[in-house]
Design a protein around this nucleic acid. Sequence first.
DNA 1: ATTGTGAATGTAATGTTATTACATCAATTG
DNA 2: CAATTGATGTAATAACATTACATTCACAAT
Lengths: 136, 136
Amino acid sequence: MTTQHMTTQQLTRNQGLVFDVLSHSGSPLSAYSILDKLRDSGFRAPLQVYRALDKLLEFGLVHRLESINAFVACAHPEDGCHAHGLTAFTICETCGKVDEFHDHVIEDRLKGFAKDRNFKTGKTTIEIRGTCAGCA
Amino acid sequence: MTTQHMTTQQLTRNQGLVFDVLSHSGSPLSAYSILDKLRDSGFRAPLQVYRALDKLLEFGLVHRLESINAFVACAHPEDGCHAHGLTAFTICETCGKVDEFHDHVIEDRLKGFAKDRNFKTGKTTIEIRGTCAGCA
DNA sequence: ATTGTGAATGTAATGTTATTACATCAATTG
DNA sequence: CAATTGATGTAATAACATTACATTCACAAT
């Protein structure tokens, strides 16, 4: 199985259920609130959620928001998001709305910084918490 | 009390103890490992640590690393770090070493993005996890 | 058909991180 | 000295995440 061009069709049942819940949520969800939403579908334990999330993260269908311990569906899951390089987020602390963006200048700048220091970059997190236009 | 030009002299006992532990640690510490290190100094409960950390964060003497749920002393606490604007971090996943840096280009870029979207920026997190030069 | 393999699942228990609630103490000020 | 404010002590609980182990499923090789 390749993780390229992954579509929601080839997900397992649990992965599909978790992705579905995230896709239909207007805001990020914690693993435990996903679990609660999936009790009726047979979910019983956190691990079922975390395992599905791990795969979805790997496929690039879901993002983890480190600063709020929550998960959100990728804004453009068609191509698995991995294609777009570094992803940054704005997170509205009032309504929970998350916007995703990609900035090559920032990406190059961080790459340059890492290279200068011989730092081998793994995963990079950029998250801006604040208030969105609608909530201002 | 002003939070400008805060020096370690004006910290309370608990704040001072926590700051001291972080300052002398070569790598970030979780709240609970700080607690463990301060048992002998009379700490008994997590809240003692979290309260001190809250203040130290407010003073700009300490940073929270969101992606690893840990805390680190500011690299230049003389001026409370707040003076330097946005702070970004590299975090070595092997040895725990953290480097702090400030990049105006990235800062301006994020500011511009927020402004374009009428997003009112609160706190911004930039963290690069990977492997440092020494551990490569 | 059978068996071997790897991925996914089910379940319980536990570990880790953070907060709420409430009582007390200390410093400052009016 | 009363009133207020900030800091502290303690217990309990909430929220987030992982370990361990048994089982099941899909599928390829025999």
